[in-house]
Amino acid sequence: MIVRLARLELWKIYRRPRSWIAFAAIAVLVSIVHVVIFLQGEQLTALALQGIEHYLQIEGRYLHGYLVAFIVQGLLLVHLPFLVTLVAGDLLAGEAAAGTLRVLFLQPVARWKFVLAKVLALGLYVASVVVFLAVIALGGGVLLFGVGDLVVLKSAGVVVIPSGDVLWRFVAAYSYNWLGLMTVALLAMLFGSLTDNALGPVIGAMAVVIVMTAIALLDVPLVAQLSDWFFTTHAAAWRLLFESPVPTMQVERSGAVLVLHCVVFSIVTGAVVERRDVLS
């Protein structure tokens, strides 16, 4: 039953023109990055290495597909959550605004099953966005620029990851990215369960992301303790996967915090929907 509902929800998601904005935006943004790096990559990397060039000498090709994909990953940190909330916020609020939530809830299906089906469909949609990003950014980058050892600049220094040790890190990073995006998407869906306005949940979720990120920047001990539980603090932990050695405990803890947020957001959404009067 749930699988059947999730398939139906997924079909509805992909039939909506809005759902393709994320794919179009990723294609455009990544293509622009590829073109810029293709034309001016050497100057840009020289600029990035300015200041440490006396301490570091890199021999061989360091501007390749892996580095480009790593750069893209960092660049789309804000854009991707926004793109997925466009769809996630619409899953309940958009249906309520259009009156189709009423059509759904008139059918002989428990409301929590609809919520669960929407969560699963959203998970698959976000996964398809991440896979598309991987194909375009990593696949396209490798095709255009080839492969090589990945040089990652950190505030504490430079990490050089051998070419053969990179791919699994990207797979893990994209998987982690999916988890981070799902957290924001489920927050937008939760907001969507509280309103009939399809735009409100998108703005609400992005506002939470901005506010949490801003609070986390405050250099106060109490805030530091608090922000350690913010999902925004952990959403960027995919970068840890490009350290050597990978701080596994830290990655696992961040992942656990994100999973906890996802579960809580889903349960609260289910509870709200279950009790909600459909008046629209």
Partner: peptide, 24 residues
């Protein structure tokens, strides 16, 4: 109930298909 709302991006047949599927 009140207004006949349907998914505007689906055809009439597809909207009915959604309802029929939900009804098993």
């Amino acid at each position: 109930i009140e207004r006949a709302d349907a998914y505007p991006y689906l055809t009439g047949a597809e909207n009915l298909e959604v309802v029929l599927r939900l009804r098993g």
